[in-house]
Design a protein around this nucleic acid. Structure first.
Length: 1035
RNA sequence: GCCCGGGUGGCGGAAUGGUUUACGCAGAGGACUUAAAAUCCUUGACCCGAAAGGGUUUGUGGGUUCGACUCCCACCCCGGGCACCA
């Protein structure tokens, strides 16, 4: 008898399959006979010595499904490639002291060899590697498309920075605030970064989830990550002036007029909020005389607490203050002219005005000391391109008003209509500051006893003049910004500082409440400010308790018996307590009453694309300073920026010797002048290349689109062929690890939806919403080893090569699938491998027995002859269990319940062995077909040898291209079953009974049973009969 | 803290509200062998019992039901994800 020589068998068939192209689908021909089925597994990243058994687990599970689909008559496409760009591979190269570009070639060879060895039905002609310039050319092209569509932008953001490795870290690498590699504490660093606007797609990404056939836990993870909350945005007024009179006076400049500029806008808004605003037209706007102006202004100013002076109105305002000798809360100077310095100049640019008159203003003598005493706070707005105000003038005011707040707003010119300034929110802020908060519980507004701002909140700077403890506040902000994530996590105790001297107004109660700055409020979520309701929010409660802030409970209108305090005169709204009921009605009622609005917030942040690393696709962007200055650029809002033209792609990653991350916060590529310095694609002057590379997740966000088109004629000219994409996408089945639940799987979906909106792809049928790349996704579980997590430090990492060498790929594949449910993951135990090894050994032996004419008499019996045979009962039996197994295995394959499918095959083999002489060749071939997806090599070998012994079965060249066994319910039907007899719910007997027995007959049968007779006397009180299962007698 | 997933023999794990423990591993007994390995056969939750049989048992406690691993409520433990998201 021959031995099961798996080494020989596996090598032989792998070669044949590849030569015959068994796994190559008809990608290009649109008239492929079989329906296309795109079966995809997440491709591996080569960041270690070789493939991990976890990869093997995932790939095998996917491959089995693909093979099943192929035998069901689909044209299955199952490609493989390497996600070889990125930090994982770069770090590995550094670790072993290699250059990533060279190491990539080494890993490539090794990984493909291993991938070959597991015997998957990969379409080897369509491999791709993300570091191949022919691939990343299109990754860059996609980036450019995103930029052109306004979906890529730059902003400054604090990123994770490891001071010891001197590099930026991704969030995944900065786990728990510590560097993954060197364990040092990660700090934050502000850097200009590229982002993709994934937040714009938040709602669609969320809505579509319901229509996707995905593992539930992954959908839930994505939902949580997107983090939609519905709530309200409410405005709290701020009182930061001592005089408390809502009365403002606006003073225009030369030829200014109250109907011009932002004056009407400001007046309108302030008056709605109960202010009195006067914007007088001064008597001689084109021939300004200070005496005349003062006369008019004095009348208007008697009750003003805030003075606003624009242009020449600024010195007018200053003069008014010193002559009227009255206390003023705030003085706001917008583009303040200094006549002493500017008048000759003014005359030259605006000759129609009477500038000799303006000269009068130059003679004003300012008593700076007096002014400073009379005005509590001065705010000055100025810009860089103001033709009437020189830098010297600004300097002049800075010198004499050292305590004023100077706010520079670039590009605003002279702050009038000529520069598009008809609305001026910054000045509104200064006159009448408000703070917006986001809350999901507006119904608790009556319990809001203080307001908290994030340290980065811009309002703090605005209020500076009114804050009495500015130094303390500034110190706090500095400290919390320097805080590491680790400190924020470990130092759970909340800290904060009150902004003394300013108060917020609770819009429901009109009561004054304190304002705090505290780092338990995040600047990146909502408005960066909250209303604190300590009675109904644990975090606020903790903070309020620590700083002795009032805690006011909002109670139900039916229940105010416990002496609850009230702000705002005891208005009651319907609301719950700490974790109590909150009614939707109350929420929106109060929101409307205080003039707030409904608001939807997402937790999702924009996708940070830049990496200051070497091993990735260079971001294909060019920055031209000349164009920026001229206000030119590919997109209006980003002057100076151009995408690299398509014809210049790819921007090849140069080989640089020192690829290690720099300490400077820029990529190692920045050091290469040859790479960095380019010509502007538009003005042809000197310009600079972006030197950051893009995130690895961008590489893997579109690979599935490239695979089917790789061997088409258009592969060189296009990222993908629209025709091919249309027939092969979306992916029919996608399988991968749950660890990619949020990042990879969300990025791919986002990019696909964006590409769909840009009309760059067009797929999606009834299976899923348009543009969704993966209508069906299943997450596999995690493998552990002998009850413990696999890790290199423990030395318990399973090396798949070893098992393939000792037991064969088929055994390893099958054991991996048998040890636990695929989607759950399980425990790899060496002892368990033996069980499968034995099973395949037995399969091999049984096959030998069938093919040996000396040991079997009935092997060639076919159906017709069997009917009259003396063994016909046995044949019926065998057919029955075979067809039951066909059903079981088919159903289990569909639901990826591989472990139970294998167990069913074991049961079948046991039965075959028991009745070996009666097993027919067709029976046996059906068994082999069931086995084929799991043990592709062995089943092929035995199938081919069975073919030799009987030519009457039509067999195509490979078992993997043969038809899946047809389930016949007639043959699977049982004739008898075990009737369970229960008495009072307890099993007392089991009797063999025919299927379909009636209740009456079943009862009679039960009562005839000896055991039952002993226990039952007289008629049972009640009989419960479950057809074909049990009968329960209640006595 | 929140959100998932799970808790069944010595172990990995099966089980449309209907015989708990399929299949496999380990164990015990036997056959073959000088012997061992390999292979094959038998056995196999626990307690009482010589046996027939009886009782107990799916993390804990309750509930619904003729009947609960399965459904409901409360709690405990383990694994994973998110984490000051207002």
């Amino acid at each position: 008898m021959k031995k099961y020589d798996f080494k020989k068998i596996e090598a032989k068939w792998q070669k044949v399959w590849q030569e015959k192209g068994v796994y190559e689908p008809a990608l290009k021909s649109s008239k492929g006979k079989n329906p296309p089925f795109y079966n995809l597994m997440m491709f591996p990243y080569p960041s270690a010595e070789g493939l991990h058994v976890g990869n093997m687990y995932a790939f095998t599970g996917t491959d089995i499904y693909g093979r099943y689909k192929r035998m069901q008559g689909n044209d299955v496409f199952e490609p493989i490639g390497l996600d070889g760009f990125g930090i994982h591979s770069e770090n590995y190269a550094m670790k072993i002291g290699a250059h990533p570009m060279k190491q990539a070639k080494v890993s490539e060879k090794r990984f493909y060899k291993q991938l070959q060895a597991i015997g998957n039905g990969f379409a080897w002609n369509e491999r791709l590697e993300t570091y191949d310039p022919e691939y990343y050319r299109w990754t860059q092209w996609i980036f450019a498309q995103m930029f052109k569509a306004g979906l890529a932008y730059r902003k400054k953001q604090a990123v994770n920075w490891c001071p010891s490795c001197m590099t930026v870290l991704s969030d995944e690498q900065a786990e728990g605030g510590k560097c993954e590699r060197c364990n040092s504490v990660v700090i934050k660093k502000d850097l200009e970064q590229w982002f993709f606007k994934i937040t714009e797609y938040a709602e669609r990404l969320l809505q579509n989830l319901d229509k996707l056939d995905w593992s539930e836990k992954v959908k839930i993870a994505q939902k949580n990550w997107i983090g939609k909350s519905e709530g309200a945005e409410l405005e709290f007024g701020i009182k930061n002036y001592e005089l408390g009179i809502k009365n403002a006076l606006v003073i225009h400049g030369v030829s200014g007029h109250k109907r011009e500029n932002w004056f009407p806008w400001l007046k309108d808004i302030l008056e709605k909020d109960g202010w009195h605003v006067s914007v007088p037209t001064l008597p001689t706007p084109d021939h300004p005389k200070i005496e005349e102006w003062n006369m008019v202004l004095k009348k208007e100013s008697t009750s003003a607490s805030v003075l606003i002076g624009h242009s020449l109105g600024a010195p007018a305002a200053l003069n008014l203050i010193q002559t009227s000798n009255k206390k003023i809360d705030r003085l706001i100077l917008v583009a303040p002219v200094n006549p002493k310095q500017d008048w000759r100049y003014l005359k030259s640019v605006y000759p129609q005005a009477d500038w000799d008159a303006v000269k009068n203003f130059a003679d004003i003598k300012f008593d700076w000391e007096k002014i400073t005493k009379l005005v509590r706070q001065v705010v000055v707005y100025y810009s860089d391109n103001d033709p009437y105000v020189s830098a010297k003038s600004v300097e002049f005011y800075k010198q004499h008003l050292p305590n004023a707040i100077f706010r520079f707003l670039p590009g605003k010119g002279h702050f009038n209509e000529r520069y598009g300034i008809t609305e001026f929110p910054e000045i509104l802020e200064a006159v009448n500051p408000k703070v917006k908060v986001f809350t999901t519980r507006p119904d608790t507004l009556f319990g809001a006893t203080y307001v908290v701002l994030a340290p980065e909140h811009p309002l703090i700077q605005n209020l500076e003049g009114g804050i009495k403890n500015v130094v303390e506040v500034k110190n706090y902000i500095k400290k919390s910004k320097a805080k590491t994530d680790e400190e924020r996590i470990e130092n759970k105790e909340k800290t904060g500082v009150e902004l003394r001297g300013v108060k917020a107004i609770n819009p429901a109660t009109q009561g004054e409440i304190s304002i705090w700055v505290a780092d338990y409020v995040l600047s990146s979520y909502g408005t960066g400010a909250i209303m604190a309701v300590p009675a109904h929010d644990e975090r606020d409660h903790e903070f309020a308790s620590k700083y002795k802030l009032p805690i006011v409970e909002v109670v139900d209108s039916q229940d105010n018996s416990d002496g609850t305090l009230w702000l705002g005169g005891g208005r009651l709204i319907n609301s719950g307590r700490f974790n109590g009921v909150d009614s939707e009605e109350a929420k929106w009622k109060i929101t409307a009453e205080v003039g707030g609005k409904k608001k939807i917030q997402y937790r999702l942040r924009d996708w940070l694309i830049s990496r200051q690393r070497y091993w990735g696709p260079p971001i294909p962007m060019i920055h031209c300073e000349g164009c920026e200055k001229a206000g030119k650029g590919e997109r209006k809002e980003m002057p100076g920026w151009y995408a690299v033209p398509d014809k210049d792609l790819p921007v090849k990653l140069p080989f640089v010797k020192d690829f290690r991350p720099q300490g400077s916060g820029s990529s190692p590529l920045a050091a290469s002048k040859a790479f960095r310095d380019v010509r502007c694609p538009v003005c042809k002057n000197k310009a600079k290349r972006e030197t950051d590379v893009s995130d690895t997740f961008l590489d893997s966000a579109w690979y599935y689109l490239r695979y089917p088109s790789l061997s088409s004629k258009t592969a060189k000219a296009k990222a993908w062929d629209p025709e091919i994409t249309k027939s092969w996408c979306p992916v029919d089945m996608y399988i991968g690890g749950a660890e990619h639940s949020v990042l990879h799987l969300l990025y791919v979906r986002f990019l696909a939806l964006a590409l769909h909106d840009l009309k760059l792809v067009n797929f999606g049928d009834s299976k899923a919403p348009k543009g969704e790349p993966f209508p069906k996704f299943r997450a596999h579980g995690l493998l552990i080893k002998e009850g413990a997590k696999m890790s290199k430090s423990k030395g318990n990492v399973v090396n798949p090569d070893e098992y393939i060498k000792n037991f064969g790929a088929d055994t390893l594949r099958m054991y991996l699938m048998f040890l636990a449910p695929f989607e759950q993951g399980g425990d790899f135990r060496d002892a368990g491998v033996m069980g499968i090894s034995r099973f395949l050994e037995r399969v091999y032996k049984f096959s030998q027995r069938i093919s040996d004419p000396n040991t079997t008499n009935y092997i060639r019996i076919i159906r017709k002859e069997r009917k009259n045979s003396e063994h016909s009962d046995v044949f019926v039996d065998l057919d029955r269990i075979l067809h039951q197994t066909i059903k079981k295995v088919s159903d289990d394959l569909e639901s990826l319940s591989y472990n139970t499918a294998i167990s069913a095959m074991m049961i079948l083999l046991n039965k075959f062995e028991e009745k070996a002489e009666s097993v027919s060749l067709p029976n046996w071939i059906d068994f082999l077909k069931l086995l084929a997806p799991f043990a592709p090599h062995l089943s092929e070998e035995l199938f081919q040898s069975a073919k030799k012994h009987n030519s009457q079965f039509i067999i195509r060249n490979s078992i993997h291209l043969s038809d899946w066994p047809q389930y016949n319910p007639e043959l699977a039907r049982e004739s008898n079953f075990t009737l369970i007899v229960q008495i009072n719910g307890k099993v007392r007997a089991s009797i063999e009974a025919p299927i379909g027995i009636s209740e009456k007959n079943a009862l009679a049968l039960a009562l005839r049973n000896e055991r039952v007779k002993e226990l039952v006397s007289g008629d049972p009180k009640r009989v419960i009969f479950i057809p074909n299962r049990l009968i329960n007698l209640v006595i």
